[in-house]
Write a protein that binds this DNA or RNA. Structure first.
Lengths: 321, 321
DNA sequence: CCGGGCCGTGATATCGTCAACATCGAGGGG
DNA sequence: CCCCTCGATGTTGACGATATCACGGCCCGG
């Protein structure tokens, strides 16, 4: 039924070990033998049995993805990018969601699946604080405070936020208010930091930020505290969507009365009313680099930290004060 | 280093086979022995080596997910639901995206990973037409025309679309135009069918539908052909977002001049301007049922077909004609 | 002309688990 | 009181791949 190396070996008139060497691209094989084996593999439709190899080598050629939620567009896009990058390197991708049992349990599940390493897409800074990633598991965390135990790949949230705020100030606004993400989120903290930085640069006092939970509904609610603002930097596009509606309901015109900037540049942002000026994150690059870093670590490299730039995309939600 | 059944067996003073029996819930184990083994497992932090089990049994306890894109909110939410349902049944989840190499290649990759079955989330009806799912792989397809080779789980798109259209007609509109999804999509075809059905019910001629590709940008573009309409049923919420902006730009007020209904009820739909009346799909139920059907098939059941209802959620984008 | 090293290849043992069969003891019926 | 049955447990081998060592032949330097 299933074709094993022994079957291929028999047909090619060699030993199973030689088939193994061909399958793994060992240089110590005579070209003629290699050709014969490759033909036999093709004839029989041989495919490696990953479980057998995993048992013997202890390596599964599988990377895990720990993700807290896929409700955010960013995580979904990263998942897709990671999946493609992993496939390109012939790694399988196992996805686990962080459920009620917490991130420890998620790691335990990945461990029992025998993944060689894991990418963590987790909103909370929980990992760095509470969880010792298993020492024998290579980990890459996306958007995390510095930590020597694992590699880090992140968007330059602070620089993006700073540029967004500077853009608003350059339009002549007296100050810029902030509708931030939830406490405990690294990305939210960084974006807030960038905003504060830009205001400090301009010698302005920072108004008290208002916080949401990344959802459009929370963005809507938060606006009740921001009705005096003429410029708002919102920490993500979905909250900006809710904010735009709330502002419209309150009779504030965007961009005539208030300018709004978001963060992420999700695909729909260009179709908001008005089309949203926002900060673009390169989710694809982030995902690809996470996989590169992880595979590097698995194959013996050192943990690294990488930052991907973010840039302001100007649309029609911002105007002169 | 790694804890095997033999280690647990030694500590509990039994044979490895007995540990195996405990781990697999065999009834032929003395309760006292079972307790001793369980304690030993806990003490040592034993976790099964899935690769070894897979090698022996030929089953990986892994299900695959074939997904064309995660750009659509629906697919992302289903992925999350599927991941949780799989974890609850102690199945691992391997995700592959359908890349440039097509769905055949995606199946080949899953096959080499040795998954026991796969859930297919594929926009196109390609699968049914072109691809013979490997006979030894159990498959559940979400939103597919009937096919005896695999199980099918689907939203009742037609009924949802019909209800949405009926809702608009009940408001006194003379007819309802349709901004549909792309050709080749089963869901799009079903939604269009439901819309036609409702118009036929009312004895109306069906206007020519306009098509987009599910993106908000395509929804925006399509509206140029719909400026005369007073009621539009849009095949998904993201296209509705683009349509709302295009209508506003054209000076058409929603809902005073035009009523708009979407499909999906994505989280942001309630924050569109105006909040969108739409048809709610229960993505979580869909994902859970897909896993249930797949596990059933793996464990020896017959292919099934299930339909999940969809219901109209009335918000503020629809009004009396 | 001989010894050592290298190249291509083969033989063997092993990873952790579980199916199949073997064993052992207790209890019940005749 | 013996034998049979059955329940609980142990023993053995195999799944498919590969690490490791072993082997025979060739080339080269001395």
């Amino acid at each position: 039924m299933r074709v094993s190396m022994a079957d291929v070996a028999e047909r090619a008139g060699v030993s199973a070990q030689t088939v193994s060497r061909v399958a793994n691209g060992s240089p110590r094989v005579d070209p003629a033998t290699r050709a014969r084996v490759e033909k036999a593999m093709a004839d029989l439709g041989y495919r490696m049995h990953r479980a057998a190899r995993a048992l013997r080598t202890g390596q599964t050629s599988t990377i895990g993805l720990v993700v807290s939620t896929l409700a955010s567009v960013g995580n979904s896009r990263m998942l897709q990018a990671i999946s493609e990058a992993a496939a390109a390197r012939d790694y399988a991708l196992a996805v686990v969601t962080v459920g009620e049992r917490g991130i420890r349990d998620a790691f335990a599940r990945l461990r029992s699946q025998g993944v060689d390493g894991a990418v963590v897409l987790n909103e909370a800074t929980e990992l760095a604080r509470d969880v010792d990633p298993p020492a024998d598991l290579h980990v890459v965390v996306v958007d995390s405070p510095p930590d020597a135990r694992f590699s880090i790949v992140q968007t330059d949230h602070a620089a993006g936020a700073r540029a967004a705020t500077a853009h608003l100030l350059a339009l002549g606004h007296d100050t810029v208010h902030h509708l931030g993400g939830p406490r405990g989120s690294f990305a939210a903290a960084e974006r807030e930091r960038g905003w504060r930085f830009a205001l400090a640069d301009a010698g302005l006092v920072t108004p008290e930020p208002v916080r949401g939970d990344w959802t459009s509904a929370s963005g809507h609610r938060a606006v009740s505290h921001l009705l005096e603002a003429t410029a708002i930097f919102v920490a993500n596009d979905q909250m900006a969507l809710g904010a735009l509606r709330a502002l419209a309901d309150a009779g504030r015109r965007v961009p005539e009365d208030v300018s709004v900037v978001g963060f992420d540049d999700i695909a729909d942002a260009a179709e908001f009313r008005p089309p949203l000026t926002t900060v673009r994150q390169d989710f694809d690059a982030l995902g690809r680099r996470a996989v590169t870093a992880l595979v590097g670590a698995i194959e013996g490299g050192e943990p690294i930290a990488e930052t991907v730039p973010a840039s302001v995309v100007v649309r029609r939600s911002t105007a002169q004060a």
